[in-house]
Design a protein around this nucleic acid. Structure first.
Lengths: 141, 141
DNA sequence: ACAGAATTGTAGCCACAGCTACAATCTACA
DNA sequence: TGTAGATTGTAGCTGTGGCTACAATTCTGT
């Protein structure tokens, strides 16, 4: 085994992240839309992500197979208990990342964009550091 | 147009990032391997990323079409001037992200893993904040 | 020089995420 | 009530990134 082999581990992690990013984005969006609209429909998700309703439909089907969402034909999309838990975790993590970026001086618009991309790649350990730093910074200022 | 429409912009940005992530990882890896081995071959990249040589081959072909790498059949893979410039930028950005994570208290192993995922999603504005914070922190300690 | 090993290329498969076009279903209003 | 518009579902295409299996080429050691 060459010394390159161990370097592949972070990349494997990156690819695994990719396969769950969409799931995380979807449960987060479904929770948000359901909270603000009363219900979440395919068309809402399509607008939210800027994709066609067909793509949403297929993805929702996949998430249903994974036990994250629950829906019936021509009915709104809802979260399972598992999906709801994931949504809460994602929302908390997203908020921590966003607030951390603001705290280190990133402008709100950029922070919103970057948080979307960054949040899926922040491990629990790093997240704790974000929280700790935010606390420390708050007590200083 | 609903008020959800504007929310699709960060997600579009996220997807654009995805399409260039592999390109960035590849040029960075090619530069690293060429520097340490003298030349970079398909087999080296396959080991580095933990994928089959077939996947590497196809991706290298795409990057060649994009003008980032230069190769010939059964020959090593090299970077074009454009690819070399991109590699330098990626390496600098990667190092800034990694050092920043270390500076806020993330352990080295986790920092290495998270930096791999995060680096592609850090905008220039956020990167400047990382650098500024690192400087400030260095002068304090 | 040549046989075997290593490397690279090709054929063809899968899954996923995007799309258009069209069909089916629901909803709402005249 | 019944039709028009909104919504959802289905068929089928593309591009990308993963793979195995096999063919071709290059490298290496005897």
């Amino acid at each position: 085994m060459s010394d390159h082999a161990k370097q592949s581990l972070p990349h494997l992690r990156t690819r695994n992240d990719h396969s769950t990013e969409l799931a995380e984005d979807y449960v987060e969006a479904i929770a948000e839309i359901a909270a603000s609209h009363g219900s979440c429909r395919v068309v809402d998700l399509a607008k939210h992500f800027g994709v066609s309703h067909v793509t949403v439909n297929r993805t929702v089907g996949r998430l249903q197979n994974e036990g994250l969402v629950k829906t019936e034909p021509y009915k709104p999309v809802g979260l399972t208990a598992k999906g709801a838990r994931l949504a809460v975790r994602c929302r908390e993590r997203h908020e921590i990342v966003y607030q951390f970026l603001l705290a280190i001086g990133v402008d709100p618009q950029t922070a919103a964009i970057d948080a979307e991309g960054i949040e899926h790649h922040v491990s629990p350990a790093t997240l704790r550091c974000f929280v700790n730093w935010s606390k420390t910074n708050a007590s200083i200022s």
